Amino acid sequence: MLKHSVSDFLGMCIVCQNTFTEVQLYKEYNYHSLLNQYTDRQGYQRCPERYGANAICAEGVDFTDHGFFAVLFFEDSKLAQVTLASRYDPDALAKIKSSLRHSFTMLLMTGSDSNLDLVNLQQKMKSDEEFTAALMDYELKELASGHLAYAYVEGINIGSGSVDAITASHRAHENDRQIEMVVSSGLLDLAFFLPKLDQKTDNP
């Protein structure tokens, strides 16, 4: 489970000036909330063997009526990423994609040995129907191969003058979340993170 692989590809590099106060990662999990807020009594356990020394885990976290195992990643004892993990279920994937459309835009899909830039694809296609057909063809082929990653960014529109996924991602604000959703080896993972705030933390 690689942290920030999507943001690395998209080249998130703009540093902004807002504070981190109560910035949501996922539901009640806020960016830079403190490690000591998550206790054994609440059901959180250390899980260093699988996810490293800076992670804690919890069972039974819900998203779109599907149960996930949650992994919370911390840097300097502050929450930096929330990842939800479960067995792959095609119906769950469809419901998650439908839910994400309300607030997030899918910019990129990455298969085993290729990627599909949806911003670039939309410019090439002559109609919405052609765009959807090409997207679905790629998705079904890569899901059948056993590995597909989806890159989502909050708060932007795919058709607002950007030439590709990288330039589209640059229009996101620092409090806009990214999601990397991965179907691989029979598992379904969703990682919620804030790469611009991470960069601001790394380069104050």
Rank of each mutant, 00 (worst) to 15 (best):
K124V: 12
M106R: 09
D113I: 00
K126W: 06
L143W: 05
L108Q: 06
M109T: 02
E139M: 11
F104A: 04
S98H: 13
A134H: 07
A134P: 03
L108E: 00
S103Y: 12
M106F: 00
G111F: 04
A134N: 06
E139H: 03
S145H: 13
L143F: 00
A134F: 01
K124F: 08
L135F: 13
D113S: 11
T132Y: 10
Q122C: 02
D137R: 03
L135V: 06
A144S: 14
L116C: 03
L121K: 07
S112D: 09
K124M: 13
E130D: 15
H102A: 15
T110R: 11
L108F: 13
E142N: 07
A144W: 03
D128Y: 10
D117I: 01
S112Q: 14
A133G: 08
M106H: 07
Q122S: 09
N115K: 11
F131R: 03
A133M: 07
E130A: 14
Y138K: 03
L118G: 05
L107C: 05
T132M: 04
L135W: 09
Q122I: 03
S145L: 10
A144C: 08
Y138T: 02
G111M: 05
T132F: 08
M136E: 15
S98A: 14
E139G: 06
Q123I: 11
E129N: 08
M106I: 09
S127Q: 11
K141P: 06
Q122H: 10
K126P: 00
T110A: 11
T105L: 02
N120F: 14
L108D: 05
S98N: 15
R101Y: 08
S145Q: 15
V119I: 07
Q123V: 03
S98P: 05
M106D: 01
H147M: 06
G111R: 07
D117H: 03
L118R: 01
S98Q: 15
M125C: 15
L121P: 01
L118H: 01
S98M: 09
S98I: 01
E142F: 01
D113H: 10
N115D: 14
K124I: 08
F131E: 02
